[in-house]
Amino acid sequence: MSELAYRVPTMAEMAANNETPEVLFWVGCAGSFDDRYKKVTVAFVKILNSAGVKFAVLGTEESCTGDPARRAGNEFTFQMLAMSNIQVLDMYNVRKIVTACPHCFNTLKNEYPALGGNYEVLHHSEYLQQLIDAGRVRLQGGEVFKGKKITFHDSCYLGRANDVYEAPRHVLEALDADLVEMKRCRTKGLCCGAGGGQMFKEPEPGKKDVNIERIEEALQTGADTIAVACPFCMVMMTDGVKNKEKEQSVKVYDLAELIAQAKGL
């Protein structure tokens, strides 16, 4: 492995040096394996580095939180994964977790406690807002996004599932762009179509795919950037833009990527 431009310590390394991170960055399966979402992981790590956050990742010791198995009805597989993850997290005495995936966020935050795993869990939109509010992430000039129109697509597992509506919008406001809302937003936000295990199967017969319905609404805003905060939404919205042959004029980015771009990282 060639030299890294940024530091990405693992929990194992930290523990070996008797160090404790401020926060564990839970990367998630999409952030680890999906080529598109790996860029979000990289962008978020760059921001954490530039903000001087002492963080760590689990590296190969991380497993799926079990969310897709649980939503599909397979409680055995979910609990197997959850219990092993809790063992790892507790072994490292993890207290605080940040993740760029709303599904991981929801499962770690709301569902692990019933199995004995208790952590403070933040979605990266909330964490980025904290970093911005604390002045640890500064966005000067705002030249990159001046005059650009951004619309934010609410992820169900962030919004309705956990009532996080404002943090991602605060992060986007820091970009000094023109934030426009879709007709269905916040509590009324329309799903991208991938939740509840749909990501891993063909849709049931119908007259339209959910992501097409949603992308039409996003395009109606006239935004040139669709901001997302979830790996599944990223896939569905990107596919939607392709379906409408708008790849040249409309881009789909995660919040962390937009902040990294604004900072020239």
Partner: peptide, 9 residues
């Protein structure tokens, strides 16, 4: 799982 880190090289 940790190969994404190559994106930071």
């Amino acid at each position: 799982r940790f190969n994404w880190v190559q994106g930071l090289e």
